[in-house]
Design a protein around this nucleic acid. Structure first.
Lengths: 210, 210
DNA sequence: ATAAAAATGTTGTAAAAGCAACAAGAAAAC
DNA sequence: GTTTTCTTGTTGCTTTTACAACATTTTTAT
């Protein structure tokens, strides 16, 4: 549904042509990166999924963003003020390519076509990210938990062209993502079921409306 | 406070070097552009301010984004499905430069250094936009109207390095921006005043805390 | 200068959401 | 295979927010 250009080819190009990138694998639960002031790291998720997390002074967790395959993230894309505030946690075993944003200014060697490819492909990754952010804003702008849930479910359904889909998040995480109280959300899911808007079987949801 | 590169020079470069861009002026209240499916227009606000607006089926207005000088917008940055859903309205007299995103693929003529400049500067504009979107998400993620207001006010205060600042939006628009009911927001502003968190004189707010 | 429109400010009441606590089921760890 | 941890599901109660209505002030239009 997102950008359709050949990202996989691009990724393999990145790895073969430039010695200024680094690829690492992470196990579920490992910290992929912590956002640092004055660093301009760029990360692209090649495999797996991960969360950008923040814990506030009260210890409340916020899922700032959830990343899936091909997501781009790093300090470059987030205004940070203090260290250790934001970090990215692998939700599944993941593979990530890292490089510094400075790569755009300082070419690594003559005739390295890495930069050309990067300049050509990066915009697509970034535009895709902007679309995600806009959707998240649309979600969070909804006034009620019910509307948030319907929007989120509809989007999931549209993404796979199917009325039924499996939730990619636990319900606990979904509440954090929609920025609502979990128990209140559960209550709302119950009324959505009662009202015949959705059907729910475990973490499989079916939309019963258009 | 945002990106510090020389945007003004870049803008004048854009206008002088490439015949594929167009610059137009708009009076307050005029529609700058309507988002169209299958178009990939890019707009940069050179002067003034504008709102990206949506009216839902109930007629409720949402300020999707508010643009100030140097903001970048257009279909490229928003996933749209239907025409006439989203449009950009000038809040003040404004000046906007338009070009098509295809400009990145199809160079206009040999030795036109427009493209080089565009490729160099556009990322800064876009990263600045991403920062704005992230801040908006942070705001909307707050669970209470009180927290949303405090975050918004703090940000305004930090931006100009001054405890006192003039609201850039009307209170009515601020409510739409924070996605809360206006009267409920007004009530919360009252309690913020009572609790000695802020001082308010017309549309000038002073933070009384850190 | 006057009328019209928009924004601000306030309040009562109904609806929604948050908080807290707990039981039951599922998944992960040992 | 058993224990421990995490997730789901539910409910009573409190706080917050939305809705609606209206008065007042400010801004805009003519």
């Amino acid at each position: 549904m997102k950008s359709n250009f050949n990202l996989d080819k691009f990724i393999s190009d990145l790895q073969s042509f430039c010695n200024k990138t680094q690829t690492k694998s992470f196990e579920k639960g490992e910290i992929i990166t912590t956002y640092l002031v004055n660093r301009r790291q760029v990360c692209i998720l090649l495999e797996g999924s991960a969360d950008l997390l923040r814990y506030d002074f009260n210890g409340n967790k916020t899922i700032v963003e959830r990343f899936y395959r091909h997501a781009i993230f790093g300090e470059v894309f987030y205004q940070i003020n203090t260290n250790n505030d934001l970090f990215v946690l692998a939700k599944e075993n993941s593979k990530v390519i890292f490089f510094n944003y400075d790569i755009f200014d300082k070419k690594c060697k003559k005739n390295c076509d890495f930069h050309e490819k990067l300049l050509i492909n990066l915009p697509n990754l970034i535009l895709s990210k902007i679309e995600d952010l806009n959707f998240r804003i649309e979600l969070l702008s909804k006034r009620t938990t019910r509307e948030k849930l319907i929007s989120y479910f509809s989007k999931q359904s549209e993404n796979i062209f199917n009325k039924s889909f499996v939730l990619p998040l636990t319900l606990t995480d979904l509440a954090d993502y929609l920025s609502v109280d979990r128990s209140a959300m559960m209550r709302e899911i119950s009324t959505l079921k009662e009202d015949g808007i959705i059907k729910k079987d475990g973490n499989k949801i079916t939309m019963l409306i258009d």
